[in-house]
């Protein structure tokens, strides 16, 4: 091949990515998207990238609560 492929040129595939990943497409649209992905490795790659990106973002921005704040919140309780 040798040519860097910038997507398959099919705008529909790019447009369907978000709703496809959020599983809000109709059954027929879902099937269409799947067929397209199977036939189009560059798009498939971008879809996989998007999945990994969502996971990556979730992990990268994760910041747990501090024990101090947890203790303060517990102190706000009415009981005992």
């Amino acid at each position: 091949m040798g040519v860097r492929v910038m997507g398959c040129g099919c705008g529909d595939c790019e447009e369907m990515m978000q709703p496809y990943m959020d599983k809000v497409l109709s059954d027929e649209q879902m099937r269409e998207a799947q067929e397209h992905l199977e036939a189009c490795p560059p798009c498939e790659k971008r879809y996989h990238f998007e999945e990994s990106l969502r996971r990556y973002v979730r992990v990268a921005v994760d910041e747990p609560i501090s024990a101090e704040l947890q203790a303060k919140l517990a102190g706000l309780r009415s009981a005992d």
């Binding site: 994760d62 910041e63 747990p64 609560i65 704040l69 947890q70 919140l73 517990a74 309780r77």
Partner: peptide, 9 residues
């Protein structure tokens, strides 16, 4: 209180 960590995140 059990949800405080998730709420904070």
């Amino acid at each position: 209180l059990e949800l405080s960590d998730q709420v904070f995140r």
